[in-house]
Design a protein around this nucleic acid. Structure first.
Length: 405
RNA sequence: GGGUGGUUACCCAAGCGGUCAAAGGGGCCAGACUGUAAAUCUGGUGGCACUGCCUUCGCAGGUUCGAAUCCUGCACCACCCA
């Protein structure tokens, strides 16, 4: 195991705060001295199925702990998911059913495995203990915190003030999450900055149970591809770890310039000096973004796929057709007696658009071309003869080859 | 249990008897430009056999020549009082 100071240096990258930092240093030192791994907890609620780059920020940190010889403990919050985490929410989140939660949990782990080494990690479900609780146990837990403590939280206070509902079950959430730490005897817990309150509740509970309290390590919230709001599925500004390489790469290229530093710091292992050099004034941000895109994509799809995605992107930016043009069968009955068809119908048949109305509009805006010489299509009503193998382009990104069948 | 306000297109949100397929913003799509699927600007954004037709304003009825707009009932949401 590496010396504590060295570990601390590595672990500090990209974090927001360590609370309390002095305690963390002591834990690290004791761990290095005795060769005892720290137990590092990260909890996720299986509420959706897409793990995105925002989730990977703490997950990558967890992996970093693993690589330094510590023990990763992943909590699948199958019971907390039934409540819904109120953190950072301006309205309450509906709880899920048990069936949904179980299916989601499986999906989640498959995706988390791309970042964390699951063969070396402990995976626990908090239903393992909560499902056995009696109402008395619940009551006992609720005695550990006051309404005042709960309502002091900014997210709750805001909701109370704006007359939005705050459910009693939501107040239980931090206590449940905290109890997880007691069950697994956590030394460190990772989470986003908005998790600080929840992470600190565990400290009190652990102390009550005679355990050394955990240290809270909070990570910045990754901003989404819009460069404004936090990355999130519901906001549609996310990059999913399971998305295809081209999509991931394209989405990275579409982020504004400002969040690039954050992305580099939190999502790559490139040395900070190298990052600074790329983001220096006078350097074309597009080139830095390309490095960023390739680095991120190769984490999930490998370096070859990342290169290919970058090449495909460049080709498209240069206005060239992609290497592989998908062939789409168009049934005979779509054509009239003379073997012709109007352009909107062809576009829908090729699945390049979902409605003829919309296809018509795109044509009227000059967004549709056909054939190798890119002849623009201007009249949405005129039937045209369609030779087998005709290439149809809609906008900059959608393309297909007609396969008459 | 009582009261009040609300439910409009992908989202937010105007409209309160006809000129409403329904203002505005966001998002999304297309075009121009470029440093890229950044930024900026322009146009578009229910469907279709498209100068017309059909379906949409929580649900079901009703009044009217005519309803997103008025009436009745129902459902759901929020807040206030208890």
């Amino acid at each position: 195991m590496r010396p504590a100071a060295e570990q601390l240096d590595l672990l500090r990258r990209g974090i927001d705060a360590i609370t309390p930092e002095a305690e963390f240093v002591k834990k690290l030192e004791a761990s290095a001295r005795t060769g005892t791994p720290l137990r590092v907890k990260y909890g996720i609620d299986p509420t959706g199925i897409d793990v995105h780059l925002g989730h990977t920020v703490p997950l990558r940190k967890l992996r970093q702990f693993q690589d330094l010889g510590h023990t990763a403990v992943i909590i699948i919050g199958d019971y907390t998911a039934l409540v819904g985490d109120p953190s950072g929410r301006s309205d309450h989140r509906a709880g899920l059913t048990k069936e949904q939660v179980e299916a989601n949990a499986r999906d989640y782990l498959a995706q988390v495995g791309k970042i964390v080494d699951l063969s070396r990690a402990e995976v626990r479900h908090n239903g393992d203990w909560f499902s056995r609780w009696t109402f008395l146990d619940v009551l006992d837990l609720t005695r550990r915190m006051t309404i005042g403590q709960v309502s002091a939280r900014e997210d709750f206070a805001l909701r109370l003030k704006s007359e939005k509902p705050v459910y009693l079950s939501e107040c239980l959430y931090p206590l449940m999450q905290g109890w997880d730490s007691v069950e697994i005897r956590a030394d460190v817990e990772l989470g986003g900055t908005e998790q600080l309150f929840n992470l600190l509740v565990a400290r009190d509970l652990q102390q009550d149970e005679g355990q050394p309290p955990q240290v809270a390590m909070t990570m910045p919230i990754l901003v989404g591809t819009d460069g404004k709001q936090r990355m999130g599925k519901s906001l549609g500004n996310y990059i999913g770890v399971s998305e295809p390489p081209e999509t991931q790469f394209g989405k990275v290229m579409s982020i504004p310039d400002e969040p690039m530093r954050q992305y580099f710091t939190l999502l790559t292992d490139l040395p900070m000096a190298e990052i600074d050099a790329m983001l220096a004034p006078g350097v074309n941000p597009r080139d830095a973004k390309e490095v960023l895109g390739k680095t991120i994509v190769s984490q999930y799809h490998g370096p070859e796929a990342a290169e290919a995605a970058a090449a495909a992107f460049r080709r498209r930016a240069a206005g060239e057709d992609p290497e592989e043009i998908p062939e789409v069968p168009v049934p005979r009955d779509q054509f009239d007696a003379d073997g012709r068809i109007t352009m909107p119908r062809l576009i829908v048949a090729l699945k390049l658009d979902s409605s003829t109305s919309n296809a018509r509009r795109v044509i009227e805006q000059g967004g549709v071309t056909i054939g190798p010489d890119r002849t623009p299509v201007t009249d949405p009503k005129a039937p045209i003869a369609v030779p087998d193998g005709l290439i149809v382009r809609v906008g900059k990104r959608k393309i297909a080859r007609v396969r008459r069948s």
